[in-house]
Amino acid sequence: MHDDIDFDQILNQYRSDPFEYIDVRTSHTGLLQFRAKEEDVVEGVTGEWQHIKGTLLFELERERNIKPVHSSVIGVVSSIERSLEGKFVEAGETVMTIRHPLKKREIIERILKNVLSIFPAPERAKYFFAMDIQSRIDKHGQRSISIKPNDEILTMSLMKRDTPVSYQGAPGIIHSVYFEPGQTIDQGQPLLGICSEDTLPLIQKIIARVKAEWD
């Protein structure tokens, strides 16, 4: 069914703009001091154990606690809200944007989002993996988890109540996870990308194709 994917067109689209633009927001209120400039190259989290912090972007001082905020991705600072420098800012304020060059893996993920069968959020709510699924993911990785309809795979936290969510759709393995546990996801947004057995060849084809053509 997806045989008619126009790879050239899709790849060209990424070639013309191989970036993701990531807004950096304040996590809480405070006095803002920028520590990076426009066009600065920034590093994301690195190290074998993800233990080395990214580049310092700005500091937020609140209740005499100066909190450094580091970049979570690699890229270039494409814009900064200079007007906020030295100001008291609200929580959730966008203070800068980072242009993040997409990696091969990320492009594959993006293309696959159109191919995998997507399990969307049934409500605007917070989601977590069911306990046993989470422990299996921790042990063996998400790709080893095969699920079938009516499996209880997620817990939806809504109105302070936890409701189990059972999977609906074709059986397959969890190929991609699109949510962060505990973050509010709007209704209809994708939660999981499931790879069923019959889409596997197509997915492998896509991966091979992108790997071959993207550098």
């Binding site: 996590s27 809480h28 209120t29 405070g30 609140r62 929580a91 304020e93």
Partner: peptide, 19 residues
């Protein structure tokens, strides 16, 4: 009206109060 991280974060509430 000031946007804060949460109604239960005393630090945000006091920071706004001071500001």
């Amino acid at each position: 009206a000031w946007r804060v991280a949460s109604y239960t974060d005393p630090n945000d509430i006091l920071a706004v109060a001071d500001h």
